[in-house]
Design a protein around this nucleic acid. Sequence first.
RNA 1: GGACGCUUAGCUCAGCUGGUUCAGAGCGCCGCCCUUACAAGGCGGAGGUCGUAGGUUCGAUCCCUACAGCGUCCACCA
Length: 931
Amino acid sequence: MAEFPKAYIPKDAEERWYPYWENHGYFHAKVNAKKKPYTIVIPPPNITGILTMGHVLNNTIQDVFIRWKRMQGFETLWMPGTDHAGIATQNVVEKSLAKEGKSRHDLGREEFLKRVWSWKEQYGSTIIRQLRRLGTSCDWERERFTMDEGLSAAVQEIFIRLYDKGLIYRGKYIVNWCPKDHTALSDDEVNYGEQNTNLWHIKYPIKDTKEFAVIATTRPETMLGDTAVAVHPKDERYKHLVGKMVLLPLTNREIPIITDEFVDPAFGTGMVKVTPAHDPNDYWVGQRHNASMGQRHQMPFINILDESARLNENVPQKYQGMDHLEARKQVVKDLEELGLMLKIEPYVNNVGRCYRCDSVIQPYLSDQWFVKMKPLAEQALKVVEDGTIRFYPERWVKTYEHWMTNIRDWCISRQLWWGHRIPVWYCEGDEFCTLECKQPLVSKTKPEKCPHCNCTELRQDEDVLDTWFSSWLWPFSTLGWPHDNPDLRYFYPTDTLVTGPDIIFFWVARMIMAGLEVTGEIPLPDGSQRKRKEDLVPFKHVYFTSIIRDVKGRKMSKSLGNSPDPLDVIAEYGADALRFTIVYLAPLGQDVMYSNEKCEMGRNFANKIWNAGRFLLMNKEQLKAESAENGGQAARSAGKPISSGTGTISDAHLDLADRWILSRLHSTVDEFNTLLDKFEINQATKIIYDFMWHDFCDWYVEMIKGRLYGSEPTEVKEVVLNRALYVFDQALRLLHPFMPFVTEDLWQRLAERAEGESIMVSDFPAADTKRIDTKTELEMRFVQNTIESIRNVRGELSVPPSKEVSIIIHFADKSKAEVIQKYRSYFQRLARVTNIEQLTDGQKPKQAASAVVEGGEVFIPLEGIIDLGAERERIEKEIAHNQKMFDSIQGKLSNDSFVSKAPQAVVEKEREKLENFRTSLEKLKKNLERL
RNA sequence: GGACGCUUAGCUCAGCUGGUUCAGAGCGCCGCCCUUACAAGGCGGAGGUCGUAGGUUCGAUCCCUACAGCGUCCACCA
C-alpha cells in the first residue's frame, strides 16, 4: 500500500492537490451552452491587504458554493481580483516615501504614480497568494484589477453616460477637510475622539431691540462666517424674534433669525448660529432654507478659511491670515472686550481627526462631483423588496430600505492621485480667448480644443474617483463590459454575492443600481434582449457573513493586532481544519468568537476521516491478499475499483447496518442539499460531521468489523467492504466543498484513478429517497438503544471493557427479542456480550444488574463483581428521571382543557408516553426491590 | 436619539416559522480503556427552572410586551 501514516498530514495533501487541480484546468470556466452557468464574483480584496480571518470565512463560503455547484454539473465561474484601494494604497506608498524623507509632491504626480504601480507589482498580489493556500477554486486565468485597462474603460464609460443623462454633476459640498494633507476625507477616514474644550456663550445684539440672541459654540472663530441664527419653529420663547435681524459682532453684517427643525430647544439657549460653509448641519440648514425661500432671501455660504485652515479675505482685515486657532483666541478676546461674552464653560466634545496625520479636520466647502442617487435608488429598492434579489439573513432588507429611501447624493471625487482620474477637462482660456469659458468637457481622452471657445489650453480635473466608483461595476466590468462578448452574455448575472453587512451601502446597493442601469444592453446568450429584472440584477442572492471577533468579543482588526495570521493557522492545523471550523462556527447572521484552538475540532475531524479511510484501505489490501490466495473470481471483484460515478452498489448480503447506513446517507444528502439551498451552511457542516463521525465511524464501521474479521467467505467480505467504500466515497463528496484537500487525497486512494480524475469534478451525491427507510432506522435505533443501555450499566458499574458478559433478555414483544438474537454479533462486538438468553415468564435472575429498554428488560448477571450499592444508586437515578417525566405527562393529561383542545394525535401520543413510563417505572421498582 | 441583533451546560455556540430526534453539540471536567482505523481516539458519566417580569395559548427556549445587560449599524453632539 502507498504510504499511509497514522495521522493526517495536511501539508502533503495541500501541496499535492492544489497544483493538480489548477494544472488540469478545473478552476477555469468556459461558456458552455450545454450547462447552466453559476457565477460568483469575489469581493475584491485591497491590494494593500493581507489575509484575515474575515477573508477566510468569506472565501470559504464562496468556495463551498462554487465547489458544490461545480460538482452538481454547473459551469462554475468564481471571478477573482483585487481592488486598487485609493487612499489605503496611496498611504502605504507615501509612508515608504516618508522614510526617504520625501513627500509625493517632491516626486510629482507622474513619478509618484510610477512608484505606486511598482509597489503594486511587487506586493499587490500578496493576498491572492494567501487565498490560494486556503484552497479556493477561483478562475485565476481571469483575475482582474480595478485599475486594469478594461475596468478603467468601464469606469470612464459609466461616468460619461451618467453625466450625459444628468446623473452626475459638480457642486459645492461640505467635506471633511484635512488642513495639513489638503485633501478631503470620507466619513470613515475620520477618527472621532473626545476632547476637552470650552463652550463659549456669545451674545448677538438683535437689531431694533435691547435683546440679545445668546448662542453657544465650540468654535467661536466660525462666527465670522455666520449667515443666520436659527431656532426651532415650535419654540415659543423665540417666536417673536423670528424674522428679525441680528447684528453679527466683529463684522458689519446683519443676519436673519430663521427656524429649522434640527435645532434642539433643550440644548443651550435653544438658539444656534448658522455657518453653512463650515459645519455640516449648518450646510443642510442653509440648503433647506434656500430651497424654501425665494430668490430675494437666499442665504449666502460664506467661506472664511483657506485650504490650510487660515482665515481668508472674507473676514475683517485684522483676522486675515491667522490660523483658525489663533483667530479663535483673538475673537474670544475681542468679544470679551465688547462685553459680548456671556460665559465660558468647560465642555467635552467629539472632534474628528485625520486618520493619517491626526490633524483636526475642518468641515469645508469645496467643489466636488456627485452622482444623483434618487433615480438610481428607486429601481434598486424595488428589486430587493419584490424578492428579485434575496438577502440572507433577510433582516438586512430593512436596513437596506431605510438607507435607500433616505439616500443622499454620492460624492465621488477624491483629492488623491492614485485612482481613476476624473474624465473631465476644463478650458483654461488662452491669450486669444475672449470668453469666460468654464464649461467642463467630459471625455475619455483629452479634447483638442474647447468646443465653446476653441481654446486649446485644457486642463484635466485633478481629482480621482472614489474607489467604490469602480467597485460598483465589478459584476459586469470583470466580464468585459462595456464590450459585448459571449462571457458577459453567459455568466451575467452572477448568482450569489458573499460579503459583509458593513458594506451593504458602499458596495452592495451601488452594484444593484449600476447593474440595473446598464446591463439591459447586454444581449442574452441567445441574442435576445435582456428585459426581465432577474436578468439585470447583478446577483440573485446576497449572503451576509458573520463578523469574526476575538475571544474578548472585539472585532478582529489590523489596528488591534488581534487577528491571527491564517497562514500560521493553516500551517498548524491545515487548511481543511481552518475552513471547516470557521464555517462550523458561523451560523447565518451571527457573529463568531474565534480563537485558534477551536481549529482542533476541524483538525480532529480531518484526522478521523483520514483514519476511517485508512481502515477501509487496510481491509481492502487484506482482502486482496486473501482472495489472491484463493485465486479465482474473488480476486477480480475485490480489485475492481468502486464506481466513480454516482454509482450503484450491490444489494447482496444487505444487513441491518447496511440498510441503515444507506438510509442515513441518503437522508443526509437530501438534507445537505436543502440546507445549502437555504444558505444554512453551518447546519450543513453539522450534519455531515455527525454522519461521518457518529453514524459512519462509531456505528457502521464498528458493525461491519464483525463480518470483515469473521469467518464469512471472502466474496461476502468483498461485497461488504465495497459497500462501505461506496458509502465513504459518497460522504467524501458531500464533504469535499468544505474540506477539499483531505477528501481529494482519500478519494484518490480509494480506487485506481486515471490521470486527471478528481473528486472536485465528480458527481455530487443525489438523494435517492427510496433508500430512506424509516422502518430500518427504527429497528437500528432499538439496537443502538439496547447496546447503549448495556454499555451504561457496564460503565456505571465500572465493568472493564475486557470483561465479557452475558445477558438475559425479557420482552413482551417477541419480535424485539428476535431482533436481538438476530444481531447478536453486534452485541458481541459493541457491548462485549458473549451469550444471550431468554428469560421465561416468572423467572427471576439473581445477582443481576438490569436495564429497562423499549418494550422489555435486559439483565446482566454480574455475580461477584456487581456492586449492589452502585447498582441501586443507578436504578434510583433512573426511577427519579422516569418519575419526573411520568408526573409531568400525567399532569398534562389530567388537565381537561389540554385533552379537549389539543389535537387528538398529540393527546394520543402523550397517553402512549405515559404508559411507557408507567411500565418502565414498574420494572425499575421491581428490579430495585430484588436487589 | 433611531434601526437591528444577541442573552441556552464551566467555556464557545446549535436549536430551521409553539407539543419525541426539546433540552443538544464541541471543548473542558469525572470514571474505565493503548479493544489490530484513529489517544487528534473509544465507552460511560456529571453539569442548564433556555437573561428578568408579565402576557397570548390547553401547552412557550420558541410568539407578544416591558425591563436589564451586551453588541452592530446609522444619525447627532451647536
